[in-house]
Design a protein around this nucleic acid. Structure first.
Lengths: 342, 342
DNA sequence: CTTTATGTGGAAATCGGTTGCATAAATTGC
DNA sequence: GCAATTTATGCAACCGATTTCCACATAAAG
């Protein structure tokens, strides 16, 4: 009973004493084949351990039953796993996609040379694409979106944007965070993040607006470039501390950056939230567990992932789906004093 | 200059005024085509934005340049993202695989009905498979391994195992943990985990051996079934507490279970590590950040993932690669008192 | 100047399914 | 009982690449 070479549809056809067309139709539950015969052929195929070769099927049908999830890391050489945010987002997306009967293909892109997105699109490996984070590829995305429809991006909503995006209201989220710090009496609030990234740029916008609304002068010395990895963020925070620039709060554009900053502050003997308040962004799982627990702008990733995949499937079906914005929520914990600390 | 339908290799051949065979060879850097001509054709193809259709290529070459990463969740209906351990492992694997120029296909398997693994193998969607966790599928894996070689499993090394596996020395790791608790003077050590899962079974073995070596009687009332999700683990811990069974330590078979137990103990007003010591397994990122920081048996996932992928590629190349065992390391933190707590 | 080696590139088979079209069989209508 | 229709099934083209085999041209050798 041992199968030799993996059997093909032609073999099943022989076993069932029908033509290949009939087998193909029966396995696809095509009503052209009467139900009892369909069942019979399916039984024979299953019993023989036959499985459709997806390579062949994909070629002929021009569909792969696969969604590509792309992480453009053009701005950062770090490992994929470095960012808990990406990881959680990926898990959520995977859940949503597999639930709909599709496979998930992970594309980690490090080579963002000209035409990288087109290379992915035209490879015909997937029926649709989710791009997580715009990185510095806004233009490339805009261009791809013109001819390729089944594409949804997680990220900020930028002006002149053609592609469909889903993301948190970054300006509003940042505004909440900074307003909260201001309400606590903080006046010299440092900003840690990479302005080159669109989402961070938007958060910066919110930061500036909050300061302006409070009538506080904006000091460029308080704006520190900080990558997403813990190590580089720690370095950035250390430099800020050692620079001697006075500050009484930090608005970090990710929780990883915030945690790194807290660590750097602790190392310098600076009390959080006593001397310096810290607010993060994302509200990843660790945020609630850190010491002190981190105040953070929560992004609803579960809803975000669901929305992304919903929109993507709409677009795959030919419908036009508009971008969506999610409302952020400030989760107040001890790291900035105030509410919890009295 | 706008491309209409995506262009095929035949179109490139026309552009370059050569036959398709020549284009195919040129793009594959086949030395049959003289170098200058090769470059020329490559330039023309790139300029036209041509990309090889992977579906067609896969069919013809019987290779997909893709590795499937499978999470059998037969034992648990939870979401993929529920377990930080799985997530981190996936990230590491993805790094190793993409570094080698392969794509990663995620397969979340919830339907473990007869032949599920064969269905994946025969789909020809991937050139090799990594199975993360044996779940309750030891037999299925053994069977698949007989005919399908490029297959590596993360999990425990079981007797009568045919397939290639990579995993931590579970017995030894558990032994370390329990020995440590015993050294602290703990005598009634509860075990939290699902014995049905092979890896957990091995950890139980280590637990029993440690107790026996210390001459301590093994009380079945202290062995509590606990799933991997936080909520169910919390319930399990709560029931243990309310049962009135006396215990002074908990050996949890995952950090998530340990953290849930700590939370349940705190809710019941029981001090950790004052009244009860807790040890976890995995040493996930949160472990160091929790209150109190969690003592845990560390699994070196980076090395694990590297080993898995190394072995897989060896097997894909036709070589025979043996199973491997990694050495666990007990990371002592405050949750069990002792060393750190004086 | 013929014969043999070498290099170059094309025609056509192939991978394993799906599907449009045609035909055969069964059913219905009158 | 025969035409009209419906239902069932098969043939063969097709998806888009890769690769084997072979033809032809050119160069080197005898």
């Amino acid at each position: 009973m041992a199968e030799d070479g993996p059997l093909k549809m032609a073999d099943v056809a022989r076993l069932a004493k029908v033509s290949m067309s009939t087998v193909s139709r029966a396995l696809a539950d095509n009503p052209l084949i009467p139900e009892d015969r369909r069942r019979e052929i399916q039984r024979i195929a299953a019993e023989a351990g036959y499985v459709i070769n997806q390579s062949a099927r994909s070629l002929r049908m021009r569909k792969t039953q696969t969604i590509g999830v792309v992480f453009p890391l053009g701005h950062d050489v770090g490992q994929l796993i470095s960012d808990p945010f990406f990881i959680e987002m990926f898990g959520r997306l995977a859940d949503e996609i597999t639930t709909r009967g599709y496979q998930v293909l992970l594309c980690r892109v490090t080579d963002t040379s000209d035409g990288w997105l087109n290379r992915i699109v035209q490879s015909h490996r997937q029926d649709g694409l989710v791009i997580v984070g715009q990185s510095d590829q806004h233009e490339a995305l805009n261009q791809a979106a013109e001819s390729y429809h089944p594409l949804v991006v997680w990220g900020g909503h930028l002006s002149g944007q053609v592609y469909c995006s889903v993301g948190t209201d970054n300006i509003g989220g940042a505004r909440h965070a900074v307003d909260h710090l201001l309400a606590l009496g903080r006046k010299r609030i440092a900003f840690l993040g990479m302005l080159e990234l669109p989402e961070i740029g938007l958060r910066y916008e919110g930061y500036v607006r909050a300061l302006r609304a409070a009538g506080i002068e904006h000091d460029p010395a308080l704006v520190i470039p900080a990558h997403f990895s813990f190590e580089t963020a720690y370095e950035a925070a250390r430099e800020l501390i050692e620079s001697g620039t006075k500050f009484d709060a930090i608005f970090a554009t990710s929780d990883i950056i915030a945690l790194a900053a807290i660590q750097a502050l602790a190392a310098a003997g600076i009390d959080v939230p006593g001397q310096v308040s810290v607010v993060g962004f994302d509200d990843i799982a660790i945020a609630a567990q850190s010491t002190p627990p981190l105040t953070s702008v929560q992004q609803d990733l579960a809803k975000g992932a669901r929305t992304i995949v919903d929109l993507l499937f709409k677009r795959m079906a030919g419908e036009d789906a508009p971008s969506a914005t999610l409302l952020p929520k400030l989760v107040v914990r001890k790291s900035c004093g105030g509410a919890s600390a009295g």
